[in-house]
Deep mutational scan, measured.
Amino acid sequence: TETYETTDETEARKIAEELKRRGLTFRIERHGTTIRIESD
């Protein structure tokens, strides 16, 4: 499991693209301005 936290929408998108490219599944949670991406 890898966890990323960012407040930057663009960075979050880049992380999501990278995880997809590596064939990982992940979920995105939003907590206020923080975007949390957690891979399975």
Rank of each mutant, 00 (worst) to 15 (best):
T1M: 11
T1P: 11
T1A: 11
T1S: 11
T1K: 14
E2P: 05
E2M: 13
E2V: 13
E2I: 14
T3Y: 14
T3A: 09
T3L: 11
T3H: 09
T3Q: 07
T3N: 06
T3I: 14
Y4S: 01
Y4W: 13
Y4D: 00
Y4V: 02
E5M: 08
E5Y: 13
E5W: 13
E5P: 01
E5T: 10
T6V: 10
T6P: 02
T6D: 01
T6L: 06
T6R: 01
T6S: 03
T6F: 07
T7N: 10
T7S: 10
T7C: 14
T7P: 03
D8H: 03
D8W: 03
D8I: 05
D8P: 01
D8E: 04
D8R: 03
D8F: 04
E9I: 10
E9F: 07
E9K: 05
E9H: 06
T10K: 10
T10H: 12
T10L: 12
T10E: 14
T10Y: 10
E11N: 04
E11F: 07
E11T: 09
E11V: 11
E11A: 07
E11P: 01
E11G: 02
E11L: 11
A12S: 03
A12W: 03
A12F: 05
A12P: 00
A12V: 05
A12Y: 04
A12R: 01
A12M: 05
A12D: 00
A12K: 01
A12G: 03
R13M: 13
R13F: 10
R13G: 07
K14S: 08
K14G: 06
K14M: 12
K14F: 08
K14P: 01
I15S: 01
I15A: 01
I15V: 05
I15K: 04
I15D: 00
I15H: 04
I15L: 05
A16S: 07
A16I: 15
A16D: 01
E17F: 08
E17C: 15
E17Q: 09
E17P: 00
E17T: 08
E17H: 08
E17K: 08
E17M: 10
E17I: 08
E18Q: 08
E18V: 06
E18F: 10
L19V: 01
L19A: 01
K20I: 12
K20Q: 10
K20L: 12
R21S: 08
R21Q: 07
R21K: 11
R21E: 07
R21I: 06
R21F: 05
R21L: 07
R22G: 02
R22T: 02
R22H: 05
R22N: 04
R22S: 03
R22C: 14
G23Q: 03
G23M: 02
G23D: 04
G23W: 01
G23H: 04
L24K: 09
L24E: 05
L24S: 03
L24D: 04
L24V: 11
L24M: 07
L24P: 06
L24W: 04
T25R: 14
T25E: 13
T25N: 14
T25D: 15
T25G: 12
T25C: 15
T25S: 13
F26P: 15
F26D: 15
F26C: 15
F26Y: 11
F26W: 05
F26R: 04
F26G: 07
F26S: 08
F26N: 06
R27L: 10
R27I: 14
R27D: 10
I28K: 02
I28P: 02
I28E: 06
I28N: 02
I28G: 02
I28R: 02
E29K: 09
E29V: 14
E29F: 13
E29D: 06
E29Y: 14
E29N: 06
E29L: 13
E29W: 12
R30V: 14
R30W: 13
R30F: 13
R30H: 09
R30A: 05
R30S: 05
R30E: 05
R30N: 05
H31S: 09
H31Q: 10
H31N: 12
H31I: 14
H31C: 14
H31E: 09
G32W: 02
G32N: 04
G32V: 01
G32L: 03
G32E: 04
G32D: 04
G32R: 02
T33R: 10
T33S: 12
T33M: 11
T33W: 04
T33H: 08
T33L: 12
T33N: 13
T34V: 13
T34P: 00
T34R: 06
T34Q: 05
T34F: 07
T34K: 08
T34C: 14
T34N: 05
I35Q: 00
I35G: 00
I35H: 01
I35T: 02
I35A: 00
I35M: 02
I35N: 00
I35Y: 07
I35L: 03
R36D: 00
R36V: 08
R36A: 02
R36M: 06
R36I: 10
R36Q: 03
R36N: 02
R36S: 03
R36C: 10
I37A: 00
I37E: 00
I37K: 00
I37G: 00
I37T: 00
I37D: 00
I37S: 00
I37N: 00
E38I: 15
E38K: 12
E38D: 04
E38C: 15
E38P: 00
E38R: 12
E38V: 15
S39N: 03
S39M: 13
S39I: 15
S39C: 15
S39P: 08
D40Y: 14
D40P: 15
D40N: 13
D40T: 14
D40C: 15
D40V: 14
